[in-house]
Computed example of a mutant assay.
Amino acid sequence: MTVLPDMTEAQIRRYARHIVLPEIGGVGQSRLIAARVLVIGAGGLGAPALQYLAAAGIGTLGVVDDDTVDLSNLQRQIIHRTSDIGISKADSARRTLGDINPEVKVCAHKERLTTANAEHIVAGYDVVADGSDNFATRYLLNDTCYHLKKILVSAAILRFDGQISTYKAWQGDGHPCLRCIFPAAPSEDSVPSCAQAGVLGALAGTLGALQATEVVKEILGIGRSLSGRLLTYDALDAAFDEMAITKRSDCPTCGKR
């Protein structure tokens, strides 16, 4: 059997179903192994995204979360177990990811992303997957990734609805950022949280898996990027819809003015 570049025989067996895909192959799998991906939040979206990314062989996974596991998390945050209640979500995620793929290096950032640390943390990664649950973090990530020229795959869920898009506005025309759609964040009081309005647990799995898929595509440069498109999912209707996003010249982050 021919040994593919930068991979052991064990890795060839582990990633065999990737390697046989012409779009990935041995070279593509080696790129995944060399990649560094930061996931914001080890919650509803981060839980499935992290597990699929670890299984895919992403070499380094960063997890940003300053929270601890609570009983109410377990309905959707499937990376955690009942025995993890009370411990750090980042540590719980690291344990699970180690069981899935011990070759993956997991960096636990047990802190909240802020204006003081965002640039330092994000700079160490190639792609960022945003699974945060508040507008302040979403906008901070959008601006930070734009200025550092990092690809951002962002998703959101509430009740039975979800949405996802990829932002890489620094690449120029045809690539908007989050602020091109929503120039300013609504007040936290105007939009209910999952704790207030509820969320279907399996919906987090759907959108988190989509995030992992888009991250892998961006690393490999395959398929059609979600940049410039907002994909929405209505779980009750079992329906996906798509909206084109236009880059705004007056965008406060990536606009020309």
Rank of each mutant, 00 (worst) to 15 (best):
T206S: 06
C180F: 14
V20E: 01
K89Y: 03
A197H: 13
T232S: 13
H18I: 00
Q211A: 05
I24V: 09
E111L: 13
P5N: 01
L178D: 10
R229I: 15
Q211N: 08
V3Q: 09
R229S: 05
V106S: 02
D84A: 05
K105I: 15
P183T: 06
A209T: 15
R76Y: 09
T60G: 03
R112A: 05
V20A: 01
K150I: 12
Q11T: 03
S187V: 12
G26P: 07
T96K: 11
A49I: 04
C107P: 00
A209P: 01
G205P: 04
K217W: 15
A155S: 10
V37R: 02
Q211H: 08
T206R: 07
I19G: 00
R13A: 04
H147K: 14
G28Q: 04
G198M: 09
F182W: 14
Y233F: 15
Q211K: 02
R179A: 14
K247H: 14
G41V: 02
L61F: 10
A202F: 15
K105D: 10
I157G: 01
V69Y: 05
G223V: 13
M7F: 02
I85T: 11
L21G: 01
T253I: 14
S88I: 13
K105S: 09
Y139T: 06
L236T: 12
A90K: 11
R14G: 00
C145P: 09
D99S: 11
A47Y: 05
D143Y: 11
R257D: 11
M7V: 03
L38G: 00
L230E: 06
K217C: 06
R138H: 06
H80S: 02
R36K: 06
L220E: 10
A197W: 12
D67G: 00
K149D: 07
V104A: 05
V63M: 09
H147R: 15
A47N: 05
G86S: 01
D67K: 04
F135Y: 07
I12M: 13
V64E: 07
G131T: 10
R229K: 12
I157K: 08
T68H: 07
A56F: 08
A49C: 08
S88R: 06
G205H: 12
I79A: 04
V64W: 10
S72R: 12
H120T: 13
V69W: 03
G26T: 10
I85H: 05
L220R: 08
T137P: 06
A156H: 08
H175T: 10
R224A: 09
V37L: 04
I222E: 02
Q211V: 15
G255S: 09
Y167P: 09
V122K: 02
D6M: 07
L200F: 14
A169D: 01
V127W: 11
G162F: 07
L97Q: 06
P22F: 02
D130R: 03
D65Q: 07
A108R: 05
F182P: 00
D234V: 06
V106E: 03
V128I: 13
G162I: 12
T206F: 10
Q51T: 12
M7N: 00
V27C: 00
H120V: 12
G59N: 03
